[in-house]
């Protein structure tokens, strides 16, 4: 892969996405082994720098890096300390001086990974920045669809929920359309950002979930936050549930066997009913599992030692086989 950073999917070509998918296949094979550890990142240092809470994404990156034999340093920072005078740039310079090959950053401000990329000699992976992008989430979503339904091209994907504040929605609009899917964004009008023009690639917008679901191959529910009600954007969560909760009855409008996805963390009983979340069509746990493989693939493609094949790491001296 001819790139240094993964900041967004807007600059990924369809070929690059396919390369990530194929590399992920190889990583899945590694993960299926009894010893899930290969050496291509030996001697590399991966720093996860999280300015926002996250369980699955941080752990997923950490496991991915460790599976590739990298050293991992986890830093959790408070975004509030930035306003107290500790700047992001200072932090990056410090990490740079300590020696990092890759910084995986999660930040509540859109564009923060671009600031990091400008001040770091190594690679930057965006693990979510504000409302802007969450490229690795979209790549794992793409992989999960591909694994279950085959090629993503031509599939109909419905993303439902708080689109305005969702980096997952934005990255998936790029990723899914680049891979050839048709995307429908669905949610209340107050939570729908201005589209068209110089913005995101063309998508369909529908405020009516029942209609949007007709013939869908994939439906992805997004987390809805309570602040949207207190902020005046929603009359009540009750009405949201009424109109937008993904229920078994609604799901029947989609194509038989349509996949149910959610980037997590879920509000069960709000944007998704438990029956659907844990039902036969749900691939939510696959998403989490595939996350590790996709992130291994990206780390490998960005900084992996290409001469090293994905052979198993030599067993530690004295280990019994």
């Amino acid at each position: 892969m001819n790139r240094r950073h993964v900041l967004d999917l807007d600059d990924f070509t369809a070929d690059e996405i396919e390369l990530v998918m194929q590399t992920t296949d190889a990583m899945k094979e590694v993960l299926a082994r009894p010893i899930r550890r290969v050496p291509p990142l030996r001697g590399k240092t991966i720093v996860t720098l999280f300015y926002e809470n996250s369980t699955r994404t941080r752990v997923s990156f950490e496991l991915a890096a460790k599976n590739l034999s990298a050293d991992v340093v986890n830093i959790t920072a408070s975004a509030s300390s930035v306003t107290k005078g500790e700047s992001l740039v200072d932090t990056i310079r410090t990490i740079q001086a300590l020696g990092a090959d890759v910084i995986v950053i999660r930040h509540s401000q859109a564009g923060a990974p671009y600031v990091v990329a400008q001040h770091l000699r190594g690679s930057v992976i965006n693990a979510g920045d504000g409302w802007h992008a969450h490229p690795t989430q979209s790549l794992l979503d793409l992989y999960t669809i591909r694994e279950r339904l085959g090629p993503v091209a031509g599939k109909s994907v419905v993303i439902v929920g708080d689109i305005l504040h969702s980096r997952v929605a934005r990255s998936n609009v790029w990723g899914m359309t680049r891979a050839g899917a048709r995307v429908t964004l669905c949610g209340p009008a107050t939570l729908m950002p201005p589209l068209g023009g110089d913005g995101l690639p063309p998508v369909t917008v529908d405020y009516d979930l029942d209609r949007a679901l007709e013939g869908a191959d994939v439906v992805m529910a997004l987390r809805i936050q309570r602040e949207r009600q207190t902020g005046g954007m929603l009359p009540s969560l009750r009405e949201y549930v009424e109109r937008y909760q993904l229920t078994p009855a609604r799901l029947r409008r989609a194509r038989p066997g349509a996949l149910v996805m959610h980037p997590g963390p879920m509000n069960e009983g709000v944007e998704i009913s438990p029956e659907v979340a844990y039902g036969a069509q749900s691939v939510i746990e696959d998403q989490v599992a595939n996350g590790v493989a996709v992130r291994m693939a990206l780390l490998y493609l960005l900084v992996g030692e290409r001469t090293t094949e994905l052979a198993a790491a030599p067993a530690p001296v004295g280990a019994r086989r």
Binding site: G111, G130, G197, D198
Partner: peptide, 13 residues
């Protein structure tokens, strides 16, 4: 500016 570009960048309009 609120608009498609702000949507793309995920910045508040």
């Amino acid at each position: 500016n609120e608009g498609p570009v702000a949507t793309r960048l995920g910045l508040k309009g």
